[in-house]
Design a binder for these strands. Sequence first.
RNA 1: GCCGCCGUAGCUCAGUGGUAGAGCGCUCCCUUGGUAAGGGCGAGGUCGUGGGUUCAAAUCCCAUCGGUGGCUCCA
Length: 937
Amino acid sequence: MAEDTHANEKTAFRYDGALARDIETRRQKHWEQENAHHVPNPGEVGFNPDQKKFYCLDMFPYPSGKGLHVGHPLGYIGTDIICRFRRMKGEAVLHPMGWDAFGLPAEQYAIQTGVHPATTTQTAINTYRRQLKAFGFSYDWSREVATIDQDYYRWTQWIWLQAYESFCDPRTGKATPIHVLEEDLSTGNLVTDGQSITAPGELSSTLTWNELEKTKQLDVIDNQRLAYLSKQVVNWCPALGTALANEEVIDGKSERGGHPVVRKPLKQWMFRITSFADRLVNDLQDLDWPHSTKVQQREWIGRSEGAAIRFSVEGHADQSLEVFTTRPDTLFGATFLVVAPEHPLVQRVKDPAVHAYCTEAANRTERERQSEDDEKTGVPLGLHGIHPVSGELVPIWVADYVLMGYGTGAIMAVPGHDDRDHAFATKFDIDIKNVVAPDDGKTTDDCFTEHGIAINSSCAALSLDGLSTAEAKATMINWLVSNGSGERRVTYRLRDWLFSRQRYWGEPFPIVFGPDGRCHPVSDAGLPVELPDLADYEPVISDEPQPLLAKATDWVQTTAGAAGVSPDRLPPETPVTRETNTMPGWAGSCWYWIRYCDPTNTDAFISEEAKAFWLNGGVDLYVGGAEHATLHLLYARFWHKFLFDLGHLPTSEPFQRLFHQGLLTAFAFQRDNGQLVPTDEVEETTEDVFVAKDTGESVRRIVAKMSKSLRNVVNPDDVIAEFGADTFRLYEMYMGPLDASKPWNTRDIVGVYRFLQRAWRLLINESTGEPRLRSETHEGIEQQLHRTIAKVGDDIERLANNTAIAALIEFVNFAGKQSGNQPALTPDQADRFARLLGPFAPHIAEELRERCGSPGCIIHAKWPNFDESMLVDDTIELPVQVAGKMKGKVTMPADADEETVKSLVLADDKIVAALEGRSIRKLILVPGRIVNLIPGD
RNA sequence: GCCGCCGUAGCUCAGUGGUAGAGCGCUCCCUUGGUAAGGGCGAGGUCGUGGGUUCAAAUCCCAUCGGUGGCUCCA
């Protein structure tokens, strides 16, 4: 015992795991007492309107029951570093955290256990919050929000109502209040044909608005809303008991769970996101986003320019067939037309073979349709289209390679210049006509899909021969327009956004259905529409969709007054039925960055003052996973845009700079046959040789995503318990670039741990805990410190935390080496070094700083300055090349001129030897960098 | 098939025209009443390959191979 005591005394202040935890506990308590990470809003005590604001947002997590694994904090550590840095630079930093807490896993857990999703979700949130706090993140926890809170989803519902009460004005392309539509239709400023809405003069046939029946008028208006009801062929997943968005279906299976998905018509709430498609593409241009993410969004939206072309149908004077093409210049090469199996024209045909084909196509999943991608199928309809230019008859086929959901659901097939049409024509022996020749004059038997020169494209009415593809397109479109057979058109791959789900654990829609079946919105005063409790959460597994909330019959059947519908719209006693669908998991994440700015506001979703300050210029930096490139990030931009149009927000884009942290992987082990072996069933026999414990067979080490099944998940609590949070933070940042994916290797943590120990030992006597400081400045160390300040500041801005840490390591190594066993830094230098370390390892940095004589919260300290002149040396070792090959280096003044350099270099034996007696033909001097001697003969 | 990104030490990564670097791992030495410890010295790279531009190329250009992420019957 006595010996132990003695040993403990000697090393009582060694920076080990126990001391790290002790420091971290005390510092975190200190920060809470000081409320150190709170940032005031306009109007609050301490708010300074002259401060520059920096809004740094993390993608908030879905709190699952399993807690955090080491991959979660990666981005959070990155943002914490730049936030702490910007605060030290004097900016007002908004750095909040919250919970994306509606969603399927909690509901599925409820189905298994009967525990209310609110209970499990709250437990998970508490775990996540505790774990996040252990990292010492500088979140302003007073701004925490959860999407499941009534105070939050009340405003989610309010925003949805904003969309419901507006339409996209075709004259401006902007979201506009719906009453403008009603007024302009009744005054004739806008006209309709019952489907679309335009300014007068742009539609061939229009309805006389004021003579229309009231219900017809309401139908037209309802059909224009940004949030509208529509009977859609949806992706119905019987196993999950819900419909899914296109984005949630991968290869005909649900993204979650991999269950089969079938196509089914269903009345659903939609968002008219397609009317914003152009703006969503164009506005990407000015955003500081990863290139790959912009590309993905553009591809996802899939804008393509072309023409709509109408073919009359022979023998059916009342019917025309409209096709969409991006190559109207190839119209003379259209030798057949193809419609999708779901196309209405198919209903005109009695042929049983046609219907057999369509039924079969409908029953095949998307996956089956795609797996046989080369083999085309189809049957002729027995109908013919009349070519709008030549008047020739063109056979019409039905084939499932044409999709009802894109363009018009019908195409003109040009087998000479489209690979798919070519394959189809070849299989069914249909004419192939070449109407485009390559620019270089060569001809080819292959299907030529590039641009070129039009050939074989003339008849009495029109000739395109000799025109380039671009000219031919324009000529053809003009001809079609003036002959009433078509027009210029843009279509998108993007579809309108299916927003209804048949689940329980989501936001209810603030809308009811009256006795006539029409919709009536809940008034603002009636919000929130609270989610009712249910006795059981079991989905009704059926081919006929049944929303879960339909089980809450008392809640569903109510009156207009009780539901919160304004008496102006319906008398309070009117019996109504509530909407039983709920919003999808994306809803809450479409606006959470707005709520953080003013999280407790009960009068508005955000105050005017808060939005003017925090949302001016949008979120300055948004960090999260690249997997959200086309879903969350597109939806969020859409919501932000329509709220901007309606005057509720100061910018049309939410996130100015976007950054994706990489995926954190882990080692996993694989047998020769490719089978994976759990990490804990493998041992390392000798260096880098691994064998399976059960069979002794050698296994290969691979890098894989962390997953429960591989048993390679690392829990951050364990790492923090052993090394402390500062080491954890440093390790994850030092592993590599923040946006690269990289493998966790517990063995390497000790590297940065030792760095912190060296830094601690540089400044602290490990026996006494007293500071080790000197009074006279070591000039070399001072210069190195200035360089480190410059580099670390630059690197943090670039989110290059790995190289910043490398610079800190180099500084500590340098200072330790220069001073030998003597104290290396003055109190002032120690303070500056601690402040540099602060953003990365805030606990130990604050402790070091305090022990060296500068107490106080490190986040409130100022970022140190550096002196430019300290970054350059007076005397340098100039590298010398002879004929471009490095031959040695010569000491000289940094600013030596050519003559000086030449004489000093020629005084060096090694250089003279390298010249081998040759004369110097040319001397290239890059001052301060290098000199290159080009020898003559 | 198309698009993006990446190939630098055994491993993970810095280094965007000018002497190839860091951490881990490895050799050897020292220290040890801090022990999966500390300190020191060192080895280890024709920068994927082949061309080109340049006084000079890991770096710029072209080609090629390998890896990785995304899109894909979208007319």
